[in-house]
């Protein structure tokens, strides 16, 4: 292929390193603060940049959905080298589940040209891990999940897909949806030049109405599930924590003996 256009689904999430909380009224994850690019998506962005590079032409387009119009996570991916982004932003998107998200992403992706769609196997905050496959079904495309390597051969994508036992070599005609695992490639750090360039790269902001979606398909109303309660899990009884004074190994041996394991 002489040019490869790759769409990467990018999620902007609350910083996982910061304390997380639930919204009191809905018991859904509090996403009101600053959002950053999900680390899991850096692999897809990097993979896409490398595939475009290898093809010798084409570009990487980011597609994202965020109720609050957040763009800082997208700027990170643009700084890595993506050409442009489509951001679906609308109050009506709050509380969308995986299928609702897939409907939104599918409608947004239809506005662009692509040979391949990449996504992470799952997001770090919601980790349902079904959105990319739901997206593939809605776009009538084949999908290959859990890729640990991705190569393009003409109009075919070749993937090593993780399995319980090892991995499978799987092929599919393009266009297709592929989800990549962490470690598939080493994501680059944005360069200073990249960060400066990202500031003027186009981010096309669209609303649910622009995409022609019905409000009943998305948001909390379309999610078809409700949280009935949130309770504290049973805590483990606190154990014995000791500083090793050269006796650490012996303490473990005694503990294992107590369980009759040795």
């Amino acid at each position: 292929m002489l040019a490869m256009n790759v769409v990467v689904c990018v999620k902007q999430i609350p910083d996982p390193a910061a304390p997380q909380s639930l919204e009191a009224s809905t018991n859904t994850l509090n996403r009101t603060g600053k959002l950053i690019m999900d680390d899991s998506d850096a692999y897809g962005v990097e993979m896409a940049l490398q595939l475009v590079d290898k093809a010798g032409g084409g570009e990487v387009t980011l597609v994202s959905m965020a109720a609050n119009g957040e763009v800082s996570g997208l700027r990170t991916a643009l700084a890595m080298g993506a050409a442009k982004a489509i951001l679906v932003s609308d109050d009506a998107l709050k509380g969308s589940d995986a299928l609702g998200t897939a409907k939104v992403l599918a409608a947004a992706i239809k506005r662009t040209q692509f040979d391949l769609i990449l996504a992470a196997t799952e997001s770090s905050d919601g980790y349902t891990g079904t959105t990319p496959v739901q997206l593939a079904e809605l776009l009538d495309l084949p999908s290959i999940t859990f890729a640990k390597s991705v190569t393009i051969d003409g109009s075919t994508v070749k993937v090593d897909r993780q399995t319980e036992a090892g991995y499978d070599e799987v092929t599919s005609p393009l266009p297709a949806v592929v989800t990549v695992t962490a470690g598939v490639v080493e994501p680059r750090y944005p360069s200073f030049k990249g960060i400066m360039a990202a500031k003027s790269k186009p981010v096309d902001q669209v609303t649910v109405a622009d995409l022609g979606l019905s409000p009943s398909d998305i948001g909390a109303a379309g999610s078809g599930q409700t949280i009935t309660k949130v309770v504290d899990a049973e805590a483990r009884a606190s154990g014995e924590i000791v500083v090793d004074e050269g006796d650490g190994a012996q303490r473990i041996v005694t503990f294992l003996e107590g369980l009759k394991l040795i």
Binding site: T226, A233, A235
Partner: peptide, 9 residues
């Protein structure tokens, strides 16, 4: 640390 209870509606 916490358990969410949910229902399909």
């Amino acid at each position: 640390t916490q358990i969410v209870h949910a229902k399909f509606t």
